Simulated scan of single mutants.
Amino acid sequence: MGNKKDVLFLEPVFQERIWGGTKLADQFGYEIASELTGECWAVSGHPNGQSMIKNGSFAGKLLGELYTEEKEIFGNHESDRFPLLTKILDANQNLSVQVHPNDKYASENENGEYGKTECWYVIDCEKDAEIIFGHTAETKKEFVEKVKNGEWEGLLTRVKVKPGDFFYVPSGTIHALCSGVLILETQQNSDTTYRVYDYDRKDKKGNTRELHLEKSIDVSTIPHKSMDVVHKVSKTDGATVTRFVEAEYFTVYKWEVDGTYSAKYEKHFLIGSVIVGSGELKINECVYPLKKGDHFIIPSGVEEFTVIGKVEIIISHP
């Protein structure tokens, strides 16, 4: 039996993408196999790329297996699979314009997969970088006509971004990261994406990538609805804690620690990703060093813990 109160550190999985680059190595020091590395699946129990536990008595176990076998660590969460997926994405080029289904549509059309609501924290970006977020069509008819006629400039809404920005992206939202943006994404545990437009790009073999226009039209929210998320900021002597969103599938925070921060979150397991700086995490007598690029899970039922150092961590829980 492993110790169910150990903090779990995870080995990420890297995914090559046509739009990827080298920032995951340049900024986080990860060993990547290709100069087209687009995604770090940092905390993943998804069969398309599972993180492995690096430390303690569960070292070598895949996160999805551990979730199934030791539900207690995760507060006996009701989901039949690990519920969330944390990624870091390096958009060296524009991503395809895409949309994700909700749970009902994905379950019926994608072999029982979850839908995909997600959110983005902008870690870094080039000056004047932007994203595509939403569209201008008021009716389904107008949306379909503009898609079929390739009227992308008139249809797609562009938004300028800067480091520290946060976007909540519910299923049904037309969206895309554009070139020069590095984000941390918290999402439902799903790998279902419908491409609406891909700039007529060709892959290494000279093929254009598949589009999913019928499914995209089925699942897109028309007209676009922007969800207002109100950030809630609380300050203590040693930390600023920003709650970005508390939504149906996840709650996401940023902890900016400069000194010492003690907290309790008994009812949830917590997912943490260190995006700036270094420090340590103390639970009872155990001390875990933290550095930029580390990803970890604090088990459910850990009554209190302390973060010491100068460090920024994105935290989420279901």
Results as ranks from 00 to 15, higher is better:
I88K: 07
D90Y: 01
D90N: 04
D90S: 00
A91P: 02
A91N: 05
N92D: 14
Q93V: 00
Q93C: 10
N94D: 06
N94M: 04
L95P: 06
L95I: 12
L95F: 05
S96W: 10
S96M: 10
Q98Y: 03
V99T: 03
V99W: 01
H100V: 05
P101K: 02
N102P: 09
Y105E: 00
A106P: 03
A106I: 03
A106M: 00
S107N: 15
S107C: 13
E108W: 07
N109W: 05
N109M: 07
N109F: 12
N111G: 15
G112W: 08
E113V: 11
Y114N: 11
G115V: 12
K116H: 05
T117R: 11
T117K: 06
E118P: 10
C119T: 03
Y121T: 00
V122W: 04
I123R: 04
D124G: 09
C125A: 04
E126P: 02
K127V: 15
K127P: 14
K127G: 09
E130A: 03
F133R: 00
F133N: 03
F133D: 00
G134C: 09
T136E: 12
T136K: 13
A137N: 02
T139D: 04
T139S: 01
T139I: 01
K140W: 02
E142Y: 05
E142P: 00
E142K: 01
F143Q: 06
F143L: 12
F143S: 03
V144Y: 01
V144A: 03
E145D: 15
E145N: 15
K146S: 13
K146W: 06
K148H: 10
N149D: 13
N149I: 01
G150S: 08
G150P: 11
E151S: 14
E151K: 14
E151I: 07
W152K: 04
E153I: 07
E153P: 09
G154V: 09
L156S: 11
T157K: 15
T157C: 12
V159N: 09
V161W: 09
V161R: 10
P163H: 05
G164F: 11
G164I: 12
G164P: 07
D165G: 14
D165I: 14
D165L: 12
D165T: 08
F166G: 15
Y168M: 12
V169P: 12
V169D: 11
V169E: 11
P170L: 01
G172K: 03
T173D: 04
T173H: 01
A176N: 07
A176P: 00
L177N: 06
C178D: 10
C178E: 14
V181M: 06
